[in-house]
């Protein structure tokens, strides 16, 4: 089968999943439960995506742990996203030198 067909199918499915709720859901949701649920969803998704994946993100749990601790501390102090993200990476890199 041609690679182009696969690529087209991937693109269409991925787009439609994003497009339908975003485009056709126009009402404001009234239910307090649903509103609260949607309010918490981003935090829940990101937390599940981060743990435990962050510990395997560098291929070495030691360097990843160093980066994670740095990110946690800087995030707790309220540093900007880019600072937290890059400091975690630099920390993991430096830890990898030892």
């Amino acid at each position: 089968m041609s690679t182009g067909i696969y690529i087209t199918v991937m693109a269409v499915i991925t787009y439609v999943i994003r497009m339908i709720p975003f485009t056709f859901f126009r009402k404001k949701i009234k239910s307090e439960f649903v509103r609260s649920f949607l309010y918490y969803i981003p935090y829940a998704v990101l937390s599940a995506m981060t743990l435990p994946a962050i510990l395997y993100s560098t291929g070495d749990m030691m360097t990843a742990a160093v980066g994670t601790v740095i990110a946690l501390v800087l995030a707790y102090l309220g540093c900007p996203l880019i600072v937290v993200a890059l400091a975690a990476s630099v920390g993991a890199y430096i830890a990898g030198l030892f």
Partner: peptide
């Protein structure tokens, strides 16, 4: 680790 650091932030 960059993206995960951003998630934590």
């Amino acid at each position: 680790i960059v993206l995960y650091g951003m998630f934590l932030a």
